[in-house]
């Protein structure tokens, strides 16, 4: 009976659009995931903000030992890494794999600089007497910024993996979307730092 059925030609079959909306599954998944991440970081940031308003029993307040100049530099570094990330994407979308590789590597290096800065910041804070267990603020501060740092680190590992793939020729222009998706993650991490820098570092009572 089935051979008598004539199906109307399916319009989105020809142009390589596999999906109902024409949007890529992977990108949609990444955006859904980022939407979910908003609530994760939102929770950590609000826990920090609430606990920052409470008096500390022991040890210094976080705001007493901020090194704003250094953190500003870190923020700048991360911001620039977003620029290099987007340049890498533009490169691979044009088929310019050499530039894409350069910018991916640069992004990873800038990200690593940021993480190194965070390790430095944490170490010096601990030396100044603010350990993880010292008081409410310190736990909240280290958890929030550390969690962000872990995100950056995972981003760098993904970037370096992309670099390796690209060197081996496993990242052709058709797969530029892979770079775009890693880029989305990377920019998201940057955007979270924009929040943290203002709300946690610059505005303090």
């Amino acid at each position: 009976m089935t051979d008598t059925i004539v199906h109307a030609p399916i319009p989105d079959q020809s142009e390589g659009h596999h999906t109902s909306t024409g949007l890529s599954n992977e990108k949609l998944a990444m955006w859904a995931f980022l939407g979910s991440e908003c609530l994760l970081f939102g929770g950590l940031i609000s826990v920090f903000l609430i606990y920052r308003n409470k008096p500390v029993g022991v040890g210094p307040k976080v705001s007493q030992i901020y090194d704003i100049p250094f953190t500003s530099v870190s923020s700048f570094v991360l911001l620039m890494s977003s620029l290099t990330m987007v340049l890498a994407l533009a490169g691979i979308q044009r088929g310019d794999h050499r530039r894409a590789r350069i910018w991916i590597l640069t992004t990873a290096a800038l990200g690593a600089t940021f993480v190194a800065g965070q390790v430095y910041e944490f170490t010096s804070f601990v030396r100044e007497g603010l350990g993880y267990t010292t008081n409410l603020q310190s736990s909240a501060f280290y958890t929030l910024t550390g969690f962000h740092g872990v995100h950056v680190t995972i981003g760098i590992i993904m970037l370096l993996s992309l670099y390796t793939l690209s060197l081996r020729g496993n990242l052709p222009t058709e797969k530029a979307e892979t770079v775009e998706i890693v880029g989305l993650y990377w920019h998201f991490v940057d955007v979270v730092w924009i929040l943290i820098f203002t709300v946690v570092y610059l505005i303090h009572p």
């Binding site: 991440e37 409470k54 267990t133 409410l136 310190s138 736990s139 958890t143």
Partner: peptide, 27 residues
């Protein structure tokens, strides 16, 4: 993600000495 935050903080309290839910530290 919201419960993840809560579980995560509780885990840090219990395993690494965080203070998120330690009333004696003002939590």
């Amino acid at each position: 993600p919201v419960i993840t935050v809560a579980l995560f903080l509780l885990m840090f309290d219990r395993l690494f000495g965080g203070n998120f839910f330690v009333v004696q530290k003002g939590a």
